[in-house]
């Protein structure tokens, strides 16, 4: 996932902004987490792909 995508990614539950935590970065963010502090939900980034499905639907 490209870092610039963070500007348009929103929490699918509350539509709020997400905080990015990077674990592995090459040209793009390979591994990490997008966190919604309001809903206390982590959306994982794996192999560069953000998983925006809420945990109850995963």
């Amino acid at each position: 996932m490209k870092e610039s995508l963070l500007n348009i990614l929103r929490c699918p539950e509350c539509k709020g902004e997400l905080e990015l935590a990077v674990e592995k970065k090459n040209k793009e963010i390979e591994e990490g987490t997008l966190h919604c502090s309001k809903c206390a939900i982590d959306y994982p980034i794996k192999d560069g792909i953000p998983n925006m499905i809420t945990p109850k639907h995963r």
Binding site: M1, I49, P50, I53
Partner: peptide, 13 residues
């Protein structure tokens, strides 16, 4: 290409 795992109904771009 930007890939995302997402429910289509939540897509807003």
């Amino acid at each position: 290409i930007d890939f995302k795992i997402q429910d289509v109904t939540k897509f807003r771009t």
